[in-house]
Write a protein that binds this DNA or RNA. Sequence first.
RNA 1: GCGGGAGUGUCGGAGUGGUCAAACGAGACAGACUCAAAAUCUGUUGGCUUAGUGCCUGCAAAGGUCCGAAUCCUUUCUCCCGCACCA
Length: 817
Amino acid sequence: MEYNFKAIESKWQKEWEKKKVFEVKEQKGKKKFYVLEMYPYPSSSGLHMGHALNYTIGDICARFKRMNGFNVLYPMGFDSFGLPAENAAIKAKAHPKKFTEDAIKNYIRQMKEIGLSYDWSRTFASHDFNYYKWNQYFFLKFLEKGLVYRKKAPVNFCRKCESVLANEQVHNGRCWRHEDTEVEIKQLEQWFIKTTKYAEELLKDIENLNWPERIKIMQRNWIGKSHGTEIDFTIDDKSWKIFTTRPDTIFGVTFMVVSAQHLKLMELVTNGQKKDVEKFLKKIKSVSEKEQEEMEKEGVFTGSYAVNPISNEKIPVYAGNFVVADYGSGMVMAVPGHDQRDFEFAKKYQISIKEVIKGENSSIKERAYVNEGVLVNSGKFNGMQSEKAKEEITKYLESKKIGRKKIEYKLKDWLVSRQRYWGTPIPVIYCEKCGIVPVNEKELPVLLPEKVTFGKGNPLTTNEKFVNVKCPKCKGKARRETDTMDTFFDSSWYFLRYCDNKNNKKPFDSAKANYWMPVDQYIGGAEHACMHLIYARFFTKALKDLGFVKIDEPFSKLFNQGMLLGSDGEKMSKSKGNVILPEQVSSKYGIDTARLFLVSVASPDKEVLWSENGIEGSLRFVRKVFDFAEKGKFAQTNKVVESKLNKAIKEITEDIEKFRYNLVVIKLRSLFDSIIEKGVSKKDFEACLKLLAPFCPHIAEEIWHKFGNKSFVSLEKWPEAGKVDENLLKQEENVDKLIDDINNVAKLVKEKQGKEVSKVYVYVIPNEKQGFVNNKNIIEKKTNLAVEIYAVNDKDKHDPQNFSKKAKPGRPALFLE
RNA sequence: GCGGGAGUGUCGGAGUGGUCAAACGAGACAGACUCAAAAUCUGUUGGCUUAGUGCCUGCAAAGGUCCGAAUCCUUUCUCCCGCACCA
């Protein structure tokens, strides 16, 4: 029968669904395994082949674990809130809800067609109020605990999103969704989540994660811990703090720089300098467009002077464009001799440069000397090494109560409010009298109104019904918060909701969550290293402290899949016309073939190049397996094949654990080649099928049933590796080599001597004789010659040229005639 | 600038101290089958050479360590990714 993959695939997809094969519940005493892929944003363009690769990687893992006796939770859902849906909907003049739900339906259909073994009974989408209700609930819990607060701060604003962005969503000074759009800094009052409260824990626990090293490094850098000293400088009788990692250079401070975005900048500006400062602020706003890369350090004198607390020198205070407003205190002590930025600034404004650190051949003529060294021009600290001086100077400042040790982090609090419609409404009410009033928990969810007018900013602000409310406290006139939550809030705990997705009393049942969590294997792209993966870790820790879960890390193990590139080696994109869709491929080759191909090209954590020729090769293999199952002659498995099978089981098991799927495919190919060539028993063939099942589940299921099995191979027990006879395998290799040799010599004889040969005499080392004799048939078959095998010491051997003396272990001598 | 990763045959890619001219796949070539083609099967696929051998070249480039290197070290070049004035 022809390999009709279409019929086979849809048949088994239906069958799995009908029998609820992949649905699971908590089972005491059974080891659980939670496999999860990052839930996708449902785009109207549907799944592309890259998704298929991503999910196939997870599906193989899930199927493998299932067959290995684990209670496997493998769910899928949709990250359905977010700006793209809103914008697309506006463009298409449809409601984002309709738009999104259509896209979800399409995704689910496509996912089922890929044969992914999800437990669909656990699915949900984050735009469903049964889900986002709990976003609001957690928001209120955080508010209660002081983990959410509102403050005015310099924030990143994207003109195209018409909304503020979190720090993590600003890449290279641009919006993460709009690479062409510079973010603007605005002073706005916004909602923040205190991620910084967990900075230390987030940093420390990275160590124990079984994650790719580079992701761990990226997170460490993002959290950016540094040890230093906080020092109080007096400016006009007021104390201003600065943070430095180089207190040893304090005698070299010749000026101070305050960030141009500093909230209290104007307090420092004297009347005389006001004009200049304002002019400067205007200027830096207008140039932000182009000079991102090589922006020159610029500043303006504020008119104020500070006093160096250790040398009592009077030093000018500047406002500068190179000081980050929300790191440390937004103000720095400038040491031009030993910091390159300060050096450039001092040169530009002719401020004096002092040398206070001496290193080997150090000089501060051309540029700052930034390494450590020995202190000079530093009063009683002269001659001290930097390392020691840092300690001593800090101690001295501490004793005078004008300085202290301090640890700073680059990690900032998470700005979660967004001025957009398609997200979870923030459950807060502003009352003229009572101020900020949280919505009563019982009133949740604050529903996102469906009937709104798009086009003029955030549609919620113009929706009177939504906005005008009574104050829950005083019943007076009040106004509802119209900002919605960053969608990263949704994705920060969705993995917990899968554990108990239908609960309408609680976000999830803790016992259930404690059974399934943590996610044992998380799979997704590296682009989330410093966004989703940090937020989700933070959220889990916060929920632990609130008593919702026992775990403090959500994802024990993380796998980053590589990107699928077009056959031209470029990233797939519509404009390049190299996009491959799963439907195109599965209708032509079948999804089993596509799955097999995707994971066979390269190690799944590397880039994968799509290739039309390549997938043809995979189809050849799948068809070969199918044909053999149909027409193959089954016989007792010989010892060699048995050893090969056992070896394959052992190696494939290890390889799947380590995501070396590409190597598994090679081993599967070689295994099936052997059994097809040498024959196999039905029972052993079934073991091979099980090995194939995670990769090509439909065809495996089909053959399994053709063999009269009533169960699902998807739920069968993974084969166990028996004994491997290495000697036998070695002998097999030797026979292969011998066959090559014979053919080679035969060819030479024919070419050189013009002689056709018909018989070959083989002379082997005596103890190897039996091994070769056992394979006599194969040798004859593959060489097309009559074969006579002698041990080299056989007395009656036919050996006219005395070639037998050339025999070596494993390498017999031969004579042809 | 800082940090991370990578450069292997015609191509995609395995391989991280000896069993490596280098798995597997693709492509190409030759043969079998066929009236023919496709599919399928067999063989070849760095060079020279040869009764199955041996030699040379070879894993970005140049050096080095070692009895021995695609694999370790140094320098250089190229590419990819992340962070980016964090004091």
